[in-house]
Amino acid sequence: MVKIMAVVTTEKESVGGGAPLFYARDKEEMQELAHLLEKLLNAAAHQLNEHSFLIVYRG
């Protein structure tokens, strides 16, 4: 089962919906947030586009 655990983005208007959203000021912060979430959630960070990361858990 693939589950989206979180979304990290620098573009607030491009995301929304049920998964927890994390807003980053710039790309560096986005990488950092995605790194932390990856380790915390035991999940993999995937890049959706220039501005957004998905943290995905495959259980």
Binding site: Q31, A34, H35, E38, A44, A45, H46, Q47, F53, L54
Partner: peptide, 20 residues
């Protein structure tokens, strides 16, 4: 190539983090 990882011409996966 960016977030895409390929082996030869087979697409493997999308990797988000630069360190990975």
């Amino acid at each position: 190539e960016g977030p895409n990882v390929l082996v030869g011409d087979v697409y493997m996966m999308n990797v988000g983090l630069d360190e990975n």
